[in-house]
Design a binder for these strands. Structure first.
Lengths: 238, 238
DNA sequence: CCTGGAACTTGAACGTGTTCAAAAACTCGC
DNA sequence: GCGAGTTTTTGAACACGTTCAAGTTCCAGG
């Protein structure tokens, strides 16, 4: 067993290098030419490996995107944690985290168009909505848990429980917008973030009013239903 | 000019037949085997034309979907108009139209998965969100105008103006859900329709309250912003 | 060192959507 | 019914994602 592990780690080094090389090459080319215009052959050629080798490390061209998610997410977290220490209100915390997300993704705007084509495709194994256990999604939601937990707002339990998920979905929506935003410096997106965060904040406040309890309950039940359904998509049967 | 038109119409007959033949063949095969598993070669072969000929009539495989939209939409309208004559309240009218939509699409559930992969893809010329001149979308929204106009509900002008669009988007959401719904007889979707229509109705009522005016205005401004942005995606620059 | 097996690498081959230049069919004015 | 022009039809060719059987490299155990 010890030997076995040693062997593995020993070999892993080379393998990991190749893997990283292919991924880096791919991401660079995606950034420069876009996803569609970057062929697997070109990636392999530029990375100095064979076509088949690229497929040894990445099951498909789409799987390169999964790796991209992971890497940008890590970066986003690194930016967000310090920012969260300085913000107290829910509004400020949410604003910071979402702005930083866009900041992180910025270099990839050109190729980001593909992200949602695949992310929104329910068939795709990369769809983060469908797969509850998707590590990127789990990690991503944890960040929004922090956003909610650390805040000083008073929010009813039922809503508070669902809020990280709702905010995560919200942030996906913002990214979707940003992908299509061709305004200079993404000003439009930043304006949208300001407006929607403000609106979300007001809605949360409104929904927290005891008056709103029945409507809130109804809406939350609906959210649950949608979540369940989204996750059922993966399993084959009924 | 007259000759020209005559010539055109004369030729159109044959051409239209071929076009229809290809489309029918394609839709049948999509229904039976699904979109991905139906190749252009197979469609051409089964229709008894050459591969190139299929591309003469349909610019791409995706464009066959556009034709599909059109044909099911026409059917949906034919079902809806009589139903709308019998329903007075907004809630009842909306419920009827959306249920009938699902009813219309039912035979295509198996292949519907592709619909949203392409419909949601902002790059695609078929994306109905991006192109506000898309004939299918125009026609589709007209139906929701009828839903609102014919109803007895009292709704503030600003909201009423935007409502057809909002309901159209809502109905797209329902379709998205239905596509992934694998429950027997799509019960889950019908339940969702009931719940969401109820919720939408309550929200409209709530939003119509003078108290809600500021929040409503803010939300509507946001909707406008989103619409504008979605439509800008098509134009190349800036 | 040698060997068996595992990890890694290769490139030819396949299936598919799409393009295109050339052929065929058709229309209309004469 | 002939010729010019237009529409329709053809199928070979291309590019790309993906697969796979076969080859190479690497390492622990003898």
């Amino acid at each position: 067993m010890t030997e076995r592990r040693k062997k593995r780690t020993a070999q892993r080094v080379k393998g990991d290098q190749t893997r990283a090389l292919i991924l880096d090459t791919a991401l660079t080319m995606f950034r420069e030419r876009g996803y569609d215009h970057t062929t697997m052959r070109a990636i392999a050629a530029k990375a100095g490996v064979s076509l088949g080798n690229a497929y040894y490390y990445f099951r498909s061209k789409e799987h390169l995107i999964q790796a991209f998610y992971q890497s940008t997410h890590d970066e986003h977290v690194a930016f967000s944690l310090p920012a969260l220490e300085k913000a107290e209100t829910l509004k400020a915390r949410l604003l910071a985290v979402i702005r930083l997300k866009i900041e992180t993704l910025k270099p990839y705007h050109h190729f980001a168009g593909v992200l949602f084509k695949t992310a929104a495709d329910p068939q795709s194994p990369l769809n983060p909505f469908a797969d509850d256990a998707n590590p990127v999604r789990v990690a991503s939601m944890q960040l929004f848990e922090k956003v909610v937990e650390g805040s000083t707002a008073r929010i009813p339990k039922d809503l508070k429980a669902e809020l990280p998920y709702l905010l995560w979905v919200f942030h996906m929506g913002i990214i979707l917008f940003w992908i299509h935003d061709r305004s200079p410096k993404h000003r439009r997106t930043y304006r949208l973030i300001d407006h929607t965060v403000e609106l979300v904040d007001r809605l949360i406040y409104l929904a927290s009013n005891p008056f709103m309890r029945p409507l809130r309950k109804q809406a939350l039940r609906l959210v649950d239903e949608l979540r369940d359904a989204a996750e059922d998509v993966l399993d084959g049967d009924e």
